[in-house]
Design a protein around this nucleic acid. Structure first.
Lengths: 199, 199
DNA sequence: CACGTTCCATACTGTCCGGTATGGTAAATG
DNA sequence: CATTTACCATACCGGACAGTATGGAACGTG
């Protein structure tokens, strides 16, 4: 008995992510997803029990990939501040230039407002991202490259701004240039340093 | 021949907004909207030619109301900086405490990624909001209450952060307190002052 | 009062699509 | 070789829902 279910299962998740990120989740039907993975809907339902389960898998795929890329960026440098800057640059890069990522996250976020499980998954992802950034800021502080009293607070502000920039990028393609990206990274670093002054 | 079409037309838009903002646009059908306005789908189609046209009307309703409220806040004070603070407080208040507004704007934004007209409407609204804030910042500068070299740039950052806070509020109800609101307003003012330092 | 116009209701159609029922084929197993 | 299991295809079902067809009541107008 052949055992290749894991491959096809993850392939379906990957294809689903691609399609969701291109056309929006609601306007992608399961026939398309199955076709993109080279099978039909009948066999799709052998691997997943519903469209929602597929969406979870697609989210997991996206989350995992984000973390991987962030780790890769961190590994490229030893200096804590540079590491922070690299991950920031990667994040801003995604917001400004990766339309698919924008579409996918926007759709997932919209769905999360109506669906508790989607929301829980997203919240958990947000937490890991935050902890990652907090760790980097903390390290830069320990290394005397940054002075931040409340790293978590500062990171929350920074992440909020990044989300907002992602939205703007959807409407104002003119801000999507490498120069803007660098300016944005520097601005974000300034927010980190600024925001935790006592209110 | 009775002429009350305008009333019912706007009533439908209002009810549509309410429902869209509560349950999400995609999960509201026209029967519901019609019923909420006290009519049936048949007569709905006498007032609107499609669901999309209704959505545009609902957006227009939301946009108009936002501007009205902002104007009201501005009218409450003469001091430019206080005016800015008031509009900021109103914006943050919406993000933190008005779940319906969050749902509606999130859904519209998600749809705007796939639909050119929705996007155009949203972009235009964003522009008016930005100009409003720029005007307030400018006035505060002229009044020597603020020093900002590039108000438009500063406002863009501020608005981005506000959008991000709106997202976080959906996941972290614990940040939705009056204290947090005030801290957020002050933090935003600091961003305005900070961000336009030369890169 | 006849007639057109406005506004509304009822009932229907057509389509999209998630999900299911069912059967087939290839490989592993005893 | 018979049988089971893993994996896939075809064909279908049924519900949800946008949009339409049609008719009726109220009111203004000639």
């Amino acid at each position: 008995m052949p055992v290749c279910a894991p491959q096809m299962r993850s392939k379906l998740a990957r294809c689903a992510y691609k399609l969701f990120a291109k056309k929006g989740i609601r306007s992608v039907n399961l026939d398309e997803v199955a076709a993109a993975a080279g099978v039909t809907k009948g066999s799709f339902y052998w691997h997943y029990k519903s469209k929602k389960e597929l969406l979870h898998a697609a989210c997991a795929y996206y989350y995992r990939r984000w973390r991987q890329r962030a780790r890769t960026e961190i590994a490229r440098d030893d200096d804590p501040l540079k590491q922070l800057e690299r991950v920031l640059r990667f994040s801003v890069q995604s917001c400004l230039f990766d339309r698919e990522s924008r579409v996918f996250t926007t759709e997932v976020f919209a769905l999360s407002l109506q669906d508790k499980e989607i929301r829980a998954g997203w919240a958990q992802f947000y937490d890991t991202v935050r902890e990652l950034f907090v760790g980097l800021v903390q390290a830069a502080c320990d290394n005397d490259q940054l002075q931040v009293v409340d790293p978590r607070r500062a990171v929350d502000w920074m992440l909020a701004t990044i989300e907002g920039i992602k939205q703007r990028a959807a409407f104002e393609p003119e801000i999507c240039t490498p120069d803007q990206r660098e300016a944005t990274v520097q601005g974000l670093l300034r927010i980190v340093g600024l925001i935790d002054a006592p209110t």
